[in-house]
Structures are given as C-alpha cells and as structure tokens.
Amino acid sequence: MRLRGIAVVWGVLAVAAAAGLFRLKYEVIALEERLATLTHAIEADRRAIHVLRAEWSYFNDPDSLDKRVGAKLDLVPMDPAHIIALDALPFRPKPVGETAGGPARPPRVLNPGSAAPIPVPGQKPATLAEYTVMRTQP
C-alpha cells in the first residue's frame, strides 16, 4: 500500500510538472513574441527618431535660418550695445517739476500711534505731547 501511495504521489508530481512545463513553455513563447514585437517597434522608432533628428538639424541650419529671419522678421544679430548690466541701468527719471532741494514728500512716520501723520479732515491731529517722546532717527 505504501509503495502504491508513493507511486501515485510521483505520478501526480510528474503530470503536474509536465503540465507546468508545458504552460511555462507557451508562456515563454508568448513573452518572447511580445519582446520581439516591442524590440522591433522600438528599433523602428529609434530609426525614425534618428531620421527626424537629422531633419531637425537640416531645418535648423543657421545659414538658412539667418536668411529666413532676415527676410521675414525684424530681427538683427545681437550687438554689444544691446547688452547692459542690470546695475548699469539708470534710475527712473524724476517727475517733471520736482526740485532737488525740497521734494513734496509726505512726512515720515516716526511715532506710529493713533494720530495720522497727515492732517486729514475728521481725524485728530497729532498733539504736541506725542512729539515730545519721539525719537529722531539718525
């Protein structure tokens, strides 16, 4: 009986292994086909990219670009005068009528408090008492 049991187990194992191998075999074949298809597609794409890169280079030939830009656009080759350092840019010009000596600037707020620095109608002007504690900025 024991012998027969072992034989059955081996038999089942053998059939299972055969079935597994069979399945594996066909799975591998399918995967290989897929790999070949993909590789082929990638190769075709790479060839196309190669040709397109050459075409891109051909259409970006500086000589023909130069001619086309000259004919169709208002662009000129860059000149040294077109380049300036940021800190060499002049400040914004002063508004007309402003004098150098006494600009009509609002007074600086030296004592931030409840009083408005500029007397506005309806607002309480700053009192002298508040100015006594103010510290002058250097």
Binding site: M78, I83, D87, P90, F91
Partner: peptide, 27 residues
C-alpha cells in the same frame, strides 16, 4: 568678434550708455 562675442556670452565691458552719476554712487 561683434557677432560671436554675444553668442559666446562674453559680457561687454565699459559704459556702453552714459551712466548717470547716482548710478556710479549707488554701485
């Protein structure tokens, strides 16, 4: 040189535009 220097990224030296005195002061 005028054509290639901007391409090569060489920054022009010297005051290409008249520089206002305050710029000189600021810098």
């Amino acid at each position: 040189i005028a054509r290639i220097a901007p391409i090569l990224g060489v920054r022009p030296r010297g005051p290409e535009t008249p520089v206002a005195p305050e710029v000189r002061f600021a810098t």
